[in-house]
């Protein structure tokens, strides 16, 4: 079988399916934290998690990249209530602390019955969250040290908001991606949704920060307009075919991108493999590729063919 050469858009080397471009996603290290959000009901914990991860698709214009990692049942949360785990990524620990404090303060503390805990071990590298939010208690906040961890109890109108003082951080990997190129928009969207569902169902430690896990306005670095850091990815914009250099195989009329941020490189690689495999199940998908910057910016190069070989059907 053949794969598509990313430079020429023509079949190049023997590979899995003939539709996978022999290229790589270029990913970057980012500082990450995991927040565990619980509430009296599943619905309220979901509302808090969704609100907290809103407007957090890309650090191009957001303070952080964030998303829901997975739902947690009662046995998995510190207080025995239903919850969600959320991953948040930022370029520095200071930026992460600011984003977490703002988002937990405005989106979780405000949400009925919620509590918020760190989902990563408290090592040497931590950020203050409850320790910053406690001042909202106006002197009536109470700290409790339980099991070696400190929590703040902040009085609010439905009782008190319980929040862990510090959150552990880790060096994660952001910017993993795969690009699904299809001949028909409806089928391409459906199969990209399937790829998102497969990743979310099978891989832990990752988030897909864009709406529904899918980005339709993939970007390239820079613009003709001064000061604009990113602009539409013309090489993957079907309506511009013929007037700009294209990286799409013939027949492509619709392209979607899945961006993957993870706590480890391996988790991002595994998610990439699962996403590519799921996308290839749809005949309307003409090719699957990945976005990079020529390999000069990000230290992590996730080669599609390599991860497909390493993470087989059982991945």
């Amino acid at each position: 079988m053949n794969v598509i050469d990313s430079r020429g858009g023509r079949p190049a080397v023997e590979s899995l399916d003939g539709r996978v471009v022999d290229t790589f996603a270029e990913a970057f290290p980012m500082t990450a934290a995991r927040a565990i959000i619980t509430a009296d009901t599943r619905d309220w914990s979901r509302i808090a998690a969704q609100t907290m991860t809103g407007y957090a698709t890309s650090v191009i214009a957001c303070d952080a990249e964030a998303g829901i990692e997975r739902a947690l049942d009662e046995s998995e949360t510190p207080d025995g209530r239903p919850g969600f785990s959320v991953l948040v990524f930022a370029f520095s620990r200071d930026a992460l602390e600011q984003a977490l404090a703002n988002r937990v303060g405005q989106c979780v503390m405000t949400c009925p019955t919620t509590a918020c805990y760190s989902g990563l071990p408290a090592g040497e590298k931590i950020v203050s969250v409850g320790g910053r939010l406690r001042y909202f208690g106006d002197g009536w906040q109470v700290s409790k040290r339980i099991g070696g961890r400190r929590y703040w109890r902040i009085p609010v109108m439905d009782g008190e908001f319980l929040c862990e003082e510090t959150f552990g951080t880790t060096k994660g990997v952001a910017g993993g991606n795969l690009i699904v190129m299809g001949s028909e928009s409806g089928a391409t969207l459906r199969v990209t949704e399937s790829a998102v569902a497969a990743i979310r169902g099978e891989v832990r430690d990752v988030i897909l920060p864009f709406p529904g896990g899918i980005a339709r306005s993939g970007s390239k670095v820079g613009s003709k307009y001064r000061g604009l850091r990113a602009s539409t990815n013309t090489a993957f914009t079907p309506m511009l075919r013929g007037v700009v250099p294209s990286e799409m195989p013939r027949g492509v009329r619709c392209v979607y991108e899945i961006v993957i941020d993870g706590l480890t490189l391996e988790a991002v690689e595994k998610a990439t493999a699962i996403g590519v495999r799921a996308a290839l199940k749809e005949p309307a998908v003409i090719g699957v590729t990945a976005g990079n910057y020529g390999g000069n910016l990000g230290p992590h190069h996730i080669r599609l063919l390599d991860v497909l070989a390493r993470f087989g059907e059982t991945a």
Partner: peptide, 16 residues
């Protein structure tokens, strides 16, 4: 009358 959430954390710690 209230339902103090922090006692749930203490309960888990006591069991541990």
């Amino acid at each position: 009358r209230f339902r103090p959430l922090f006692l749930r954390l203490i309960r888990r710690d006591l069991e541990r």
